[in-house]
Simulated scan of single mutants.
Amino acid sequence: MDANQQTRSNPFGMDEACTNCAALCETRKSLVHGYGDVGADFLFVGEMPDAGADETGVPFTGDERGEALQHILGLLGLNNSLPSSDEPELENVFVTYLTRCRHPERPPTDEEITTCEPYLNAEIRMINPEILVPVGERALEAIATEYTTTPADEIKMTDHHATTIRGRGFELVPMADPLEQNESEREAFLDHFESLMDSDYRQTKGRRGR
C-alpha cells in the first residue's frame, strides 16, 4: 500500500466501497478514510464521521465540530485554509477516525471499531507519526488500549486533556471534543501543543494571534 500525496484524500488508496459492516452500509453517504499529509508528525483520531464528514467524505469537515477542530489546527499553523473548507490544506497533520462510516442514530459498536481497526492501524503504520491525538473519550479509550502500557480505565479525558502520555512508539496528547471544549480547555490544548511543537520539533511558526 503506497501513499499518493497527489491527493490529501485517502492517500493510501484504501477500499472506498467497503461492505464489512452491513448496518453502516445502509446508513452512510460516504466512506470516510483519512485525509492530510502522509509525512505528518501529528495524527488526530476521532471516533466516527459526523454528518458533515458523511456528506463531504473528508474527516472533520462540513459541520460545527469539524470547523472547531480545523480552527484549532489553523491556530497551530497546521491548516492553511478556512475552517469551513471541505478540502482543508493540512500540512504536517493527518486526520482520521476509528470507524469510517456513520450511523445517524447511534455511535459505533465495539465490533464496528474492531472491524475498522486495520484501516487505522495501516494509516498509523504508513505515516509513523510522532504524536497521536485521540479526539474525544471513545478515541482516547481505543488509542490508549492499543498504544500505551497504562490500563485504559486509568486514562480519562477529564484528567488527561492537553497532557502528554508516553505510548508504545508514540506520545499521546488527548483532546476533549472540540465542539464541547470551553475557552479554558481550548487554550490549555493550544498552549500545551504549541509548547510541544516548539520544544520537540523546533518549528519556527511563531506565535498565533487570538
Rank of each mutant, 00 (worst) to 15 (best):
residue 51 A to H: 07
residue 127 I to G: 05
residue 33 H to N: 08
residue 85 S to Y: 01
residue 40 A to I: 01
residue 164 T to Q: 02
residue 192 H to M: 13
residue 112 E to W: 06
residue 210 R to L: 14
residue 145 T to G: 13
residue 150 T to K: 09
residue 84 S to E: 06
residue 79 N to P: 02
residue 128 N to P: 08
residue 65 R to A: 08
residue 21 C to R: 09
residue 201 Y to V: 09
residue 77 G to V: 04
residue 63 D to S: 08
residue 15 D to G: 03
residue 140 L to I: 00
residue 166 R to S: 14
residue 50 D to K: 12
residue 171 E to D: 12
residue 139 A to G: 02
residue 129 P to A: 00
residue 73 L to W: 05
residue 177 D to M: 06
residue 139 A to K: 00
residue 16 E to K: 12
residue 93 V to Y: 01
residue 90 L to Y: 01
residue 14 M to P: 07
residue 192 H to S: 10
residue 80 N to W: 11
residue 21 C to V: 15
residue 113 I to D: 05
residue 100 R to P: 04
residue 102 R to P: 07
residue 147 Y to N: 08
residue 168 R to C: 11
residue 64 E to V: 10
residue 148 T to A: 01
residue 105 E to G: 09
residue 71 H to I: 09
residue 145 T to Q: 15
residue 166 R to L: 12
residue 75 L to T: 06
residue 30 S to Y: 10
residue 1 M to D: 07
residue 206 G to P: 07
residue 141 E to H: 13
residue 36 G to L: 07
residue 82 L to H: 13
residue 206 G to T: 08
residue 111 E to L: 09
residue 15 D to E: 07
residue 89 E to A: 10
residue 75 L to H: 10
residue 65 R to W: 08
residue 15 D to R: 06
residue 138 R to Q: 12
residue 18 C to Q: 11
residue 11 P to W: 09
residue 97 Y to H: 09
residue 91 E to I: 10
residue 53 A to L: 07
residue 82 L to N: 15
residue 162 A to F: 08
residue 46 G to E: 02
residue 92 N to R: 02
residue 184 S to E: 13
residue 19 T to N: 12
residue 180 E to M: 15
residue 113 I to G: 08
residue 114 T to R: 12
residue 54 D to T: 03
residue 126 M to F: 13
residue 149 T to W: 10
residue 203 Q to S: 15
residue 85 S to H: 10
residue 70 Q to L: 12
residue 165 I to G: 06
residue 43 L to M: 03
residue 56 T to D: 05
residue 41 D to T: 07
residue 175 M to F: 05
residue 69 L to R: 07
residue 136 G to M: 06
residue 178 P to F: 06
residue 147 Y to Q: 05
residue 65 R to G: 03
residue 151 P to F: 08
residue 171 E to Q: 11
residue 141 E to I: 09
residue 39 G to I: 07
residue 100 R to Y: 04
residue 181 Q to E: 07
residue 34 G to M: 07
residue 2 D to G: 14
residue 16 E to D: 11
residue 186 R to C: 06
residue 180 E to K: 14
residue 69 L to Q: 03
residue 155 I to H: 01
residue 157 M to E: 09
residue 112 E to R: 00
residue 56 T to K: 07
residue 195 S to W: 10
residue 14 M to F: 15
residue 107 P to T: 02
residue 141 E to A: 12
residue 134 P to T: 00
residue 205 K to T: 10
residue 82 L to F: 14
residue 38 V to T: 09
residue 191 D to V: 03
residue 204 T to V: 14
residue 18 C to V: 13
residue 41 D to R: 14
residue 8 R to H: 10
residue 54 D to E: 01
residue 111 E to Q: 08
residue 63 D to W: 00
residue 167 G to Q: 00
residue 76 L to E: 00
residue 125 R to F: 15
residue 29 K to N: 11
residue 174 P to C: 05
residue 149 T to M: 06
residue 185 E to W: 05
residue 30 S to R: 12
residue 195 S to K: 04
residue 203 Q to E: 12
residue 34 G to K: 03
